[in-house]
Design a protein around this nucleic acid. Structure first.
Lengths: 200, 200
DNA sequence: CGTGTTTTGGAAATCCGTCTCCAGAACCGT
DNA sequence: ACGGTTCTGGAGACGGATTTCCAAAACACG
């Protein structure tokens, strides 16, 4: 017994993504979002208490989607195969959904907003972080000789370096970049001890 | 025959760095800088035409210092030794001058400001970029089988991934992170062809 | 010691973005 | 048809940040 919504939360968040192509997160203003959406700012504030909550929601939605699909890849038994699949998935995602990937992979939760997150969003964020940590930990567990830090470096940090490089030049991730990332994680996961000698 | 300056350009830029510890670049306001400096905003605008020009100048100064010291490391004849030295230097720099390193290594010139840079700063920026490119190219030239993209990935992107990780967790770069980076670049530079087989 | 030049020190104009508020519209269930 | 509830639509208060402006201050030099 109520008027039905004209703009759903997802539509509003999609409008944020659309503004995000071509602008930094801190540049995303409610006015810009409402322009893209064709709605007045009041409708946005009806659903999201603050601008920061809106931005945080978009970040969370992207992260939860990311995690859901990544978990599959990380489930592959052989750790190197799992790592390669995870990397390929990430790079493919960065190609297909640049705005969402850039937002989640390049911007830390802490540096996204100035104000503190509301408890509910904070809960979702810590759950997401825990789930990602667990997935990586399980890969580490079945990779002989590889620490958690090593797995995280190989499967998250190194791919992000490639994504960042491509994003800053505006071009798409090319084949060579992908090959470099795959080489790297293959070495880091398959032969943890092979190279401990230090050159100097 | 003039009143001597009380606040030099370098002092003002240092004040920006001080604000930058704990705030994103877009959060740096002229008011905050003038507070740190103990000077009114007028004195700052006397030297820098706009806020963006000030921020750009700080970025450029950091980059030019970075390049000057990195060039030494990259001059070492053996490419792997040069790469290791370059990486160690970068990580050491990130430890000792966190604000400057974060600003230059983590923020792209394009995403630092909204408005276009004045011609003079733009000139310095392109010169800096060219000098960095040349240094990497010369390493690539004496590394058998390594493309420019490979060298750049190994010597800039991968170390930055480690720096970024450490910066986001607030902790310092630990020994394990450094070892991971060194392993990685050693493999990427020393054995470009060793791993071209694709798993799948 | 006076003159000229540069810098300081603030005060305030101006702009932009967040957020509030409320009247009216639109729909569901009975 | 109608009452109750939720949503829209827009106007504007409010705060914060950039930038302008100018009188006063401080020094170098003749």
């Amino acid at each position: 017994m109520a008027r039905p919504p004209k703009y759903s939360s997802d539509q509003i968040m999609d409008a944020v993504l659309s503004v995000l192509r071509g602008h930094r997160p801190d540049e995303v203003s409610v006015a810009a979002v409402s322009d893209v959406l064709g709605a007045p700012s009041g409708s946005i504030y009806h659903r999201f208490p603050t601008r920061d909550a809106l931005l945080a929601s978009v970040w969370l939605r992207a992260g939860e989607r990311f995690r859901a699909s990544l978990a599959e890849a990380l489930g592959i038994p052989d750790p190197v195969d799992a790592g390669l699949a995870a990397v390929r998935y990430q790079l493919e995602w960065a190609r297909r959904r640049p705005a969402e990937a850039r937002l989640f992979l390049l911007y830390d939760r802490a540096e996204l907003t100035n104000t503190a997150w509301p408890p509910q969003l904070l809960g979702r964020a810590t759950r997401l972080a825990n789930e990602l940590t667990d997935a990586l930990r399980s890969v580490a567990a079945r990779t002989p000789g590889a620490s958690f830090a090593r797995v995280r470096f190989a499967l998250l940090d190194v791919p992000q370096a490639a994504i960042r490089r491509a994003a800053s030049s505006g071009a798409e991730l090319d084949g060579e970049a992908q090959r470099l990332v795959e080489e790297t994680i293959e070495v880091l996961l398959a032969r943890p001890e092979a190279l401990t000698r230090m050159a100097s």
